[in-house]
Amino acid sequence: AKPPKTVTVKVEVTNADGETQTRTVTLTNLPKDLKPGDTVTLPETGQTARIVEITP
């Protein structure tokens, strides 16, 4: 079996106070056609994050 493909992405997350924070997260099994501006759900927090940058 192939190991899951991990991708490092820079995302913007809005916290409970309405502040936008930029975080770098490593995600696995992202859709192939994901692009900056799309939103993903962070598995560890369940927060919705907007992708700023994808590092191949």
Rank of each mutant, 00 (worst) to 15 (best):
P4T: 12
D38S: 04
R23V: 14
R50W: 07
K5T: 13
V7M: 15
T26F: 10
R50M: 11
I54Y: 05
G18E: 02
K10P: 00
K5G: 09
N15D: 11
G46R: 04
K32C: 09
N29V: 06
R23P: 01
L27G: 02
T20M: 10
L42S: 01
K32H: 14
T14Y: 12
G37A: 01
T26S: 07
T45N: 07
V13Q: 02
L42C: 07
D38Q: 04
T55R: 10
A1I: 12
T41S: 06
V25L: 14
P36F: 04
E12P: 00
T45S: 09
R50I: 15
N29K: 08
D33G: 13
P31M: 13
P43A: 07
E44H: 10
P56W: 15
T20N: 04
E44T: 09
T45D: 07
T20A: 06
T45I: 06
E12F: 09
V13W: 15
P56E: 13
I54V: 08
P4W: 05
L42T: 01
T22S: 05
G37Q: 01
T22C: 09
L42M: 05
Q21Y: 15
K2D: 10
V11W: 04
L27I: 07
N29F: 09
E19P: 03
T26D: 04
V11Q: 00
N29A: 08
T20W: 07
T26L: 10
L34D: 00
K32Y: 14
V25G: 01
V11E: 00
P56F: 14
T45W: 05
P43M: 07
P31K: 12
T45L: 06
T26E: 09
P4R: 07
E12Y: 09
E53S: 13
A16W: 09
G18P: 01
L42A: 01
I51M: 01
T55Q: 13
Q47V: 06
T45E: 03
T26G: 03
T45Q: 03
L30H: 11
P4N: 12
E53W: 12
L30P: 15
T24Y: 15
L42N: 02
E12G: 01
V9Q: 00
V9E: 00
E19H: 11
T48M: 11
G18A: 02
G46I: 02
P43E: 07
I51C: 01
T24F: 14
V13E: 02
E53D: 06
N15M: 12
G18C: 03
T24G: 01
A16Y: 07
P3F: 09
P36Y: 05
E53G: 05
T39A: 05
T22R: 08
P4I: 13
D33I: 07
T24L: 13
V9M: 11
T20P: 05
K2G: 13
Q21A: 09
E53I: 04
D38M: 09
E12S: 09
I51P: 00
T28G: 08
Q47P: 01
T8G: 02
L27T: 02
K2A: 13
T8P: 01
I51A: 01
K32T: 12
K35D: 02
V7F: 15
T22F: 15
I54Q: 02
D38V: 03
V25E: 03
A16R: 08
T45H: 03
V40S: 00
V7I: 12
T55P: 07
V9K: 00
N29D: 11
T8Q: 09
T41A: 05
V25A: 03
L27C: 07
T14M: 13
T45G: 06
T41R: 09
E44L: 09
V11S: 00
V13G: 01
P4Y: 05
K2P: 12
I54N: 02
P43C: 09
R23M: 15
T14P: 03
E53H: 06
V52Y: 02
E53Q: 09
L42V: 04
Q47E: 15
A16T: 08
P43K: 05
L34Q: 02
V7L: 14
T45V: 04
R23D: 02
T24S: 06
L27A: 02
T8V: 11
E53V: 04
K2V: 13
T6K: 09
T24V: 14
A49Y: 06
A49L: 05
N15E: 06
E19A: 11
V40W: 15
P3M: 04
A49H: 02
L34S: 06
A16E: 12
L42R: 00
G18W: 01
T28W: 08
P4D: 11
R50A: 02
G18Y: 02
T55K: 10
P3Q: 07
T39I: 15
T20I: 13
G18N: 03
K2S: 14
P31I: 11
K35N: 05
G37F: 02
T28S: 11
P36S: 04
T22K: 04
V7H: 09
T24R: 05
Q47F: 08
T26A: 04
K35W: 04
I54S: 02
V52T: 04
N15W: 05
Q21M: 14
K32I: 13
V40Q: 00
P36Q: 05
T28K: 10
P4F: 07
L27W: 08
T45F: 05
E44C: 09
P31D: 14
G37W: 02
K5Y: 15
K2C: 11
T48K: 09
V25H: 03
Q21V: 15
L30Y: 15
N29C: 09
D33V: 07
T14C: 07
P31C: 10
D38E: 04
E12R: 08
L27H: 02
T6D: 05
P36W: 04
A1M: 13
K10S: 04
T26Y: 11
G46P: 01
V11F: 07
V11L: 07
Q21C: 10
L30N: 06
E44P: 05
D17E: 11
P36E: 08
Q21N: 07
T24K: 04
V13K: 01
A49I: 05
E19V: 14
T28M: 11
D17L: 10
T14F: 12
T22H: 08
P36K: 07
V52P: 00
V7P: 02
D38T: 03
R23E: 04
A1K: 08
N29H: 11
N29I: 05
Q21W: 15
T14A: 05
G46C: 05
T8R: 11
P36V: 15
T26N: 06
D33F: 10
A1V: 13
L27N: 01
R50Q: 05
E19L: 12
T28Q: 09
T28R: 13
P4S: 13
T20G: 03
P56T: 12
E19R: 12
Q21H: 13
A49N: 00
V9G: 01
V7Q: 10
K10I: 15
T20Q: 06
K2I: 14
E44D: 15
Q21F: 15
K32S: 14
K10C: 06
L27K: 01
L34K: 04
V40P: 00
A16P: 09
L30I: 14
G37T: 01
T8H: 06
V40E: 00
K5E: 11
T20H: 05
R23A: 05
V52H: 02
P56R: 08
P36L: 13
K5S: 12
T8S: 08
R50S: 04
K32N: 12
V13Y: 15
T20E: 03
G18V: 01
T14G: 03
V13L: 10
K10T: 11
K5V: 13
P3C: 08
D17M: 11
T6L: 11
T6P: 10
K2M: 14
T55N: 13
P4L: 11
P43N: 05
K32Q: 12
K2Y: 13
I51V: 14
D33W: 14
K35C: 05
P31F: 14
G18K: 02
P31R: 13
V25K: 01
P4C: 13
E53L: 07
G46L: 05
K2Q: 13
A49R: 00
T24M: 13
E12Q: 11
E12I: 12
V13P: 00
E12H: 07
